[in-house]
Design a protein around this nucleic acid. Structure first.
Lengths: 341, 341
DNA sequence: ATCAAAACTTTACGCGCGGAAATTTATTGT
DNA sequence: ACAATAAATTTCCGCGCGTAAAGTTTTGAT
């Protein structure tokens, strides 16, 4: 009863009294064999705990079960959470997710794409770095592999899933204008299209409401948003350059830095009595509920974006057709009212 | 000049005018071929951008270049950062890191181990879940694969690399006692040995300094430390159950929650005038510098732990010997003084 | 120029499995 | 009970590469 030399599928087949091709069929799709043989295989499986050699399997299958996930920055809790959700969906669907982080670096994204390609993946879910991305390399990749982009719309892949920045920014601008001074806009570094879209959305919303947009410009390509929010924030607050007492940050990580800056400058943040400044964010990052004060923000629908991305990818994989038109699906954000604004 | 049907190594070999076995040798170790042939290969490589089929390569090599990295919770910035450092070291050494997150769940850790095993990895770097880990499965894995454990010392693998909790906790306890009221200890959920070690280290340090240890107990197996710090913190602060005005948290994420609780209760945190409570953490998480106020803590030496883990693993892989004794390497923490305590 | 060592080429086999084709066996419905 | 169909079996080839063995060429030092 001890596990013997059952290493190959051949071994396992003879040990379980079934022919190897049938066993092979079973591993490709347990439903594809007769119920009785399936049962016999599974009995033997429990006895010998054999698993097919992954490399041999994937070498011969024209299509593997691998799905690549590439995110720009895994230390960002937004992407950590997205990765977690996507991984789970893939596993549940019988696929094998492989996670890569570009760590904010162009070359690492390129490397991830190359490595991924050599894995002959069934598909890929990519949140591009953005401006730092090598679009040519990415497009070439997407030509060969069914690819869904998410978060950052770089016009690559067969579909895009993300948030409707115009809706979400509009929502919070409207809220801020309605409940106090109209906000100025603390931008994020223009690392990706979201940065520009959110700025444009802010301007549009302000003009729609008859207000004058005021933007605090930020340059660079750094992904250390908190640091930037803190340093830039301290500078601005010290110089009293703030055009209004309300700041809408391009994302929560910037806001977290700005909250720290305000705290360190002795400014009370919030909408209540005796508060000097209101600060709002965007994304509803996992940590936003633990800031001081808790951050008012607009949530991105993490679960919906993850689900939809995965569904679209599975659709592409199933049909195998490269649709001529690139689908774009945008989800609405929801106002998350806490006490910072 | 356009890339032709150079798909296999055979194609590439003929295209570059070199025999396939030599090309194969080159890909296994570019140094192993003559400088002149290496140059010829690399010229052809630039021209045809061929990459060996990963599956075919790994099927035939007795030992792959894969290195598995398993962390318990990727949304924790500590592990995100460790993963980043380790990945880089592996890539630089010509290995191929594959990252898994257990997402705090026992079954996912088991799955990761199984998947990893089927990849015939050269080695593995594992930060175990801790109490939720299936130690039998893990030991069986480590019997077959050179394995280095880090962060959480579960007595698995051929070596362990981590922080010296007794030193680091001792350091901050001494600091807190020296500069104000002796601290009570807000534990983390006992998910892993670090939790118990840090509690024990706190008790030992307090007794060494002639103080009475006071512990705020926490149960459960949740990894949502901030949430726990916030909720438990609010309860304790509301009930005025705090034995002293100084709280040492078992880790920074708990401290972040407690800081939020104190803020929401209107308590001023810090060591200055008019501060009601001092709060300190442990780990120097990437976000600790952005809390309000910035968090006083003890840093873990991320880079040293990552480097040492990887070095030890490479040593194991190189020698191929299962050392009889399990090495343990602990790094010291450093006091990071900010304004929260 | 000479020669041994080093590097390369040719040839050949095997890894573990997917999958096709032809044949045999088992399962349905009437 | 019988065909008609579904499922398994047997046999075989190929995937792309590692790697061993034997023979050939190149290299570098004398």
């Amino acid at each position: 009863m001890v596990e013997r030399k059952v290493q190959t599928m051949e071994d396992f087949a003879t040990a379980s009294g079934i022919s190897r091709p049938t066993v092979s069929k079973y591993f490709n799709d347990p439903e594809s064999v007769r119920q009785s043989t399936r049962a016999r295989i599974e009995v033997a499986l429990a006895k010998f705990n054999y698993t097919p050699n992954l490399f041999a399997v994937n070498q011969n299958r024209k299509q593997t079960k691998n799905i690549g996930i590439i995110v720009p920055y895994l230390a960002d809790p937004f992407f950590a959470e997205m990765a977690r959700l996507i991984e789970r969906r893939c596993i549940d669907a019988g696929f094998w997710p492989i996670l890569f982080s570009s760590h904010g670096q162009r070359q690492m994204e390129i490397n991830a794409l190359e490595t991924l390609r050599s894995l002959k993946p069934a598909g890929a879910l990519i949140a591009p770095l953005g401006r730092a991305s090598d679009l040519d390399v990415m497009r070439k990749f997407a030509d060969d592999v069914p690819t869904v982009a998410f978060d950052s719309n770089q016009d690559i892949g067969d579909a895009f899933v993300g948030s409707d920045n115009f809706q979400s920014i509009g929502l919070i601008v409207e809220y801020l204008c309605r409940t106090g001074e109209p906000p100025c806009f603390f931008e994020m570094p223009p690392v990706n299209p979201n940065a520009n879209k959110r700025r444009a959305a802010y301007i549009a919303a302000m003009e729609r409401l008859g207000q004058t947009p005021e933007i605090i410009h930020v340059g660079g390509q750094s992904w250390e948003f908190e640091k930037m929010g803190l340093e830039e924030g301290k500078r601005i607050l010290a110089e009293r350059k703030l055009p209004t007492n309300t700041v809408l940050c391009s994302n929560d990580r910037i806001a977290i830095g700005l909250l720290a800056a305000a705290y360190q400058m002795g400014l009370r943040v919030g909408h209540g009595e005796g508060c000097a400044i209101r600060i709002a964010g965007h994304d509803d990052h996992p940590w936003s509920q633990f800031t001081c004060p808790p951050l008012t923000t607009v949530s991105q629908n993490y679960a919906a974006i993850a689900d939809c991305s995965v569904e679209k990818l599975f659709g592409l994989i199933a049909t195998g057709t490269k649709s001529e038109s690139r689908e774009v699906k945008l989800f609405h954000g929801q106002l998350v009212l806490r006490s910072s604004a």
